[in-house]
Design a protein around this nucleic acid. Structure first.
Length: 267
DNA sequence: TTCCAGGCGTATC
DNA sequence: GATACGCATGGA
């Protein structure tokens, strides 16, 4: 990763990053593409830090981004200090994963905020991506930005009706209550072993194994977590009836993301 | 009109 | 512990 300042922007040169593949592959729901051409530009947020980023000929442009914000927010968010070439090299020893990595080699796992990821994936259940985005957008409109947990203190499912989240409203309300009560403290549990985090998260109504693993993979950077949805279930049955090979396991969550995108969008 | 969407809670066995 | 079913909403 190398970068330089250019006016108010940061120009970044990095391999293994494709904005479409990373920002529009179902791991984050607050990025909007501007324009249809090959020159793509995305607008979005990490919590309430906004960003416009584009892919230009030899570099990525982070618009109106100071060096401090770039280093403290966006380098970790885009996981820029992880060598995805090396991870893909390891994963590609498996035949199916080799195809998935080659198909969309610009996917990176976004290191999202733990609460933002948990809330987003509670909303994601039995839902489609355009609707998930709409519900989260209305949540942000209601609170003037992505709400801090304390801003939502005491919220009832009825008050969340304008989100049109359906049966998920009561799950969001239960999550907010447990976090505000201190019954669950995300910053504390994220230090625990994976299995223990999962158990705690599943105490929240509407959080099962899939949502818990998404919260861990995308919100706590547990890259060994594999959220098993309908797509991954199909992949596992077809290609990995005995589970992933041993050498995949430390990166199973990243492998999952390559496979998810490959299965969903190829042919 | 019917089906389905990055699942989960509940009832039932 | 496994399996069937309902669930809010909206686009195809």
């Amino acid at each position: 990763m190398e970068y330089l300042r250019r006016g108010n922007d940061i120009l970044l040169k990095t391999p293994d990053l494709d904005l479409d593949e990373t920002l529009d592959c179902g791991q984050a729901f607050r990025w909007e593409r501007e324009g249809n051409g090959a020159e793509c530009k995305y607008h979005g947020f990490r919590l309430n830090t906004p960003l416009a980023v584009s892919a230009e000929k030899d570099y990525f442009r982070f618009f109106d981004t100071g060096e401090e914000e770039f280093l403290s927010v966006w380098v970790p968010y885009f996981d820029l200090e992880t060598d995805y070439s090396e991870i893909k090299r390891i994963l590609s020893e498996d035949r199916t994963l080799a195809k998935a990595c080659a198909y969309a080699g610009g996917i990176r796992i976004l290191r999202q905020d733990s609460w933002e990821a948990l809330c987003s994936f509670i909303i994601s259940q039995n839902n489609n991506i355009p609707r998930i985005k709409g519900i989260i957008r209305r949540l942000c409109e209601m609170y003037g930005g992505f709400p801090d947990i304390t801003q939502m203190k005491g919220v009832s499912p009825e008050e969340l009706a304008p989100l049109r989240a359906g049966f998920r409203a009561k799950y969001i309300a239960d999550c907010v209550r447990k976090l505000n009560d201190g019954e669950i403290v995300l910053d504390e549990i994220k230090e625990l072993p994976t299995d223990e985090i999962r158990k705690v998260l599943m105490r929240i109504k509407g959080v099962g194994p899939k949502v818990a693993d998404c919260a861990m993979l995308y919100g706590m950077y547990r890259i060994d977590c594999v959220p098993v949805d309908v797509w991954i279930k199909r992949v596992m049955e077809q290609f990995y009836p005995d589970g992933f090979p041993e050498f995949v396991l430390p990166y199973a969550g990243i492998a999952q993301q390559y496979l998810f995108h490959y299965m969903r969008t190829s042919n």
